[in-house]
Design a protein around this nucleic acid. Structure first.
Lengths: 224, 224
DNA sequence: TTTATTCTGTGTATTTTTTACACAGATAAA
DNA sequence: TTTATCTGTGTAAAAAATACACAGAATAAA
């Protein structure tokens, strides 16, 4: 006997089952030489007093990407943040109120460019060290962060995914530190530079960064 | 002025917007030394006479993965097929009848293990060469196939993603052909073998395949 | 049965890529 | 002015990827 034998609700119809969609964005930041994740507690909702990544429901007239922008802005004030899709989660009981599936994204930003403010509906918002995530996280958000982190690590291996993690102009040691902290490994200075230069993605500004011993040169990402 | 200023519908509520979810599965097959995609035309629905990948709506009591299994079985009869998530698409007008977002998967199967039959609601079902996809494809399914194909190629580079594309026991030349056709490049025989052996994923059965000149050895994938 | 044809299976030399490694010059701090 | 810290650079060694040819096995043809 076959559990699918008499299922014919394959076709999209006006009365097809519907459920809510949310976009969740794992926002990574890089500060004090540590990779951080932005988490918040809401003042309202079903799982108060639990930390979660920014997320919220999609509406009729928007794509999920529109929704992600909207949500990020509403909950953090951030605007024009680049993000990429990671994965979609659809466990049946992931949301206590009703059936909700969520499409997840990650974003990389530089916290000092985006000071945290308490927006409406937000009780607390904080950067957490990747290795010191709080115990009480809502929904499946711990899994979600894990997956997003793995995704970022993979992307970093052959592309340049600095995103907004560094200021527009940065030194090579700064870039290398970023890589080391995201990949969680130690890199050789000369080999790292060799690789970056042959990727041909950096442009020297000719200027030196003041206030640092050694007087390191400032670079920026080449625009295509 | 800010387009998001007075949006507060972030929170999941009982009356949050809902829409239908579909799972679409790009099924790749490998036959006659060619990589193929399984497409079908339905007898009912909104875009008749257009080829599309198997897909259908998710219901209340199932995850999207459940849905993908169900849909695949309903439309093709295939069962116990392994598939992986590729990406979620949410353009507003992608479906003519109503708002539908789709979560896409890919699967790799061996056509000769899964003969095509016309199931209910299916008008035609066929394997198409990857480089000879039909003109009249429904929805955004051409894009969807492109993305799935790129995904498979990437996976193949460092993992073994034979899926079900080959029989349980296969020869090294067969495996190499598969790689060459998926990656669309020519590989060196000796180097390919060297790589496979040092990946340590193959187990020799000790038997030779009959009916082939040279008497090639049969291998199978090592189970962990 | 013999012969011809086609396919499999193997090792080594060459090139390319990756890794390891140390010190002089610049700047800030003392 | 001296000291301490950080930047910037090249080369040698190791590892990985690539290029390449022929003998043996099985089928197909004579």
């Amino acid at each position: 006997m076959d559990r699918y034998e008499n299922l014919e609700n394959i076709q999209v119809r006006p009365d097809s089952f519907e459920c809510s969609i949310t976009a969740d964005i794992t926002v990574f930041g890089y500060v004090e030489n540590k990779l951080k994740v932005l988490l918040l507690k809401k003042t309202v909702g079903d799982i108060k007093d639990h930390w979660m990544v920014p997320g919220g429901v999609m509406e009729a007239q928007e794509t999920i990407e529109d929704c992600a922008s909207k949500v990020l802005h509403a909950l953090t004030g951030f605007q024009n943040i680049h993000f990429e899709q990671v994965r979609t989660y659809s466990s049946i009981d992931r949301h206590p109120l009703k059936r909700v599936i969520t499409v997840c994204y990650y974003a990389l930003i530089k916290p000092e460019n985006h000071p945290l403010t308490l927006r409406s509906n937000v009780q607390s918002i904080e950067w957490f060290d990747m290795d010191k995530l709080p115990e009480n996280m809502g929904f499946d958000h711990r899994l979600l962060i894990q997956d997003a982190y793995a995704f970022v690590q993979n992307n970093l291996r052959d592309r340049l995914v600095v995103g907004e993690l560094l200021p527009k102009q940065f030194t090579l040691p700064e870039l290398q530190n970023l890589y080391e902290h995201i990949l969680n490994i130690k890199l050789d200075k000369r080999n790292f530079r060799k690789k970056m230069f042959q990727m041909d993605i950096l442009k020297s500004t000719g200027e030196k960064k003041a206030g640092v011993k050694g007087g390191p040169l400032l670079y920026e990402v080449k625009q295509l």
